[in-house]
Design a protein around this nucleic acid. Structure first.
Lengths: 148, 148
DNA sequence: TATTGTTATACTCTATAACTATA
DNA sequence: TATAGTTATAGAGTATAACAATA
């Protein structure tokens, strides 16, 4: 089983690095938004609200339950970052960024741009080489195993 | 701020892919070990026990509290996969794989080797190109942001 | 006194189920 | 009847604090 062990070692080494790097990426994001006093989930929701969106859509995009989106929306509203606005279908509530929410979103964007490991540690050529490899690895099914 | 937005978009796209891929890698691992009826944390601990190790070491390597390692050890022991053996320092207990534990570890290894996305979706040349990019991204500090 | 492992407990995160209002 | 959001609650996962034994 020598061959299988070599294959295992290579897979373990690479996937270990991938998982570490993704973990670092998440941790960097967490650190950036912690300075804005935001838990990661709230920050992710803010970034998703480029356009006002039904809470149900948020639940789908974050891959979590509607009840948890209610929880997130409550906390975002307490902080004055979003407002619930009614849609034409009166069952639906859209989450819409307030001015403070827009400012927060922009602050997150700029901080990520300034500090991302992907930008600070790789040259343009390296990033150009990385992108197609990641695309090859990305599941065509669009299976999102991330999220909640 | 046009330039900053472009940088942000590129960082977001790449880090999104990285996080997705790492998530898929973790999900694949979870699926493999679920077939062996093992939660991910127990499986990770089994893979770490190539050599018998003090519980404290496990806590460090898994980046979680000693009390949680007690929990993991209890569950691994219930399944007959590890034994607690005393070290020369009688405060210390080493976790040591039983024969069943060794068989389980090997089963995990082989299944990972057979099914890893990294091996099935990338050519040898692509993996060779990926490795140095991941190394460039890997934190020199060895900061482990993964774990518990 | 400091460290290992254990116990009991509490907290965070997230989901499930039941409910209301609207379609 | 089915869907959007809410509420109350429960479960998993993990940490904290206090403790016993040993160094």
């Amino acid at each position: 089983m020598r061959h299988s062990e070599q294959r295992y070692d290579e897979a373990r080494r690479l996937s270990g690095m991938l998982i570490d790097i993704a973990g670092q990426t998440k941790a960097d994001f967490a650190e950036i938004v912690a300075e804005l006093d935001l838990p990661v989930h709230l920050a992710r929701a803010v970034l998703m609200l480029d356009e006002p969106a039904p809470m149900r859509d948020l639940a789908d995009r974050l891959a979590c339950d509607r009840s948890y989106v209610t929880n997130l929306a409550d906390r975002l509203e307490e902080r004055g970052l979003v407002e619930r606005v009614s849609g034409t279908d009166r069952r639906v509530k859209l989450l819409s960024l307030t001015d403070a929410g827009i400012a927060t979103r922009d602050a997150i964007s700029h901080a990520v741009a300034a500090r991302s490991m992907l930008l600070t540690r790789l040259t343009d050529a390296q990033r150009a080489a990385l992108a197609p490899l990641l695309e090859a690895l990305t599941d065509a099914d669009g299976r999102r195993s991330d999220g909640c």
